[in-house]
Simulated assay, not measured.
Amino acid sequence: MLLLSTISEASYPHAQGTTSKDLWPSLQQAYAAHSSSREYTLKTQLLKLEMKPDEPASTYLTRAQDYSDALANIGEPVKEKDLVMLVISGLREEYNGLKSTLLARQAPTSFQELR
Rank of each mutant, 00 (worst) to 15 (best):
D22G: 11
A15H: 05
L3N: 00
K52F: 05
R38I: 04
M85A: 15
I74P: 05
A32M: 10
R38M: 05
S100H: 13
T62Y: 08
S20D: 14
E76P: 05
L42N: 01
Y60R: 06
V78F: 06
E80P: 07
S89G: 13
E9Y: 11
S11Y: 06
N73K: 12
V78A: 01
A72L: 03
A104S: 15
S58A: 15
V87I: 13
L49C: 09
R63V: 09
S68I: 04
E80H: 03
S11H: 08
I74E: 08
I7A: 00
A107T: 15
M1D: 13
L103D: 08
D54S: 14
I74F: 06
E76G: 06
Q45C: 07
S36L: 14
Q28T: 10
P13R: 06
I74N: 04
T19K: 11
N96P: 01
Q29H: 10
Q28R: 13
G97R: 02
I74G: 06
I88P: 02
Y95T: 00
S8V: 00
R63W: 02
T18N: 14
P56A: 10
T44G: 03
S8G: 02
L3G: 04
I74K: 05
R115E: 11
Y31T: 03
D69H: 13
S26C: 01
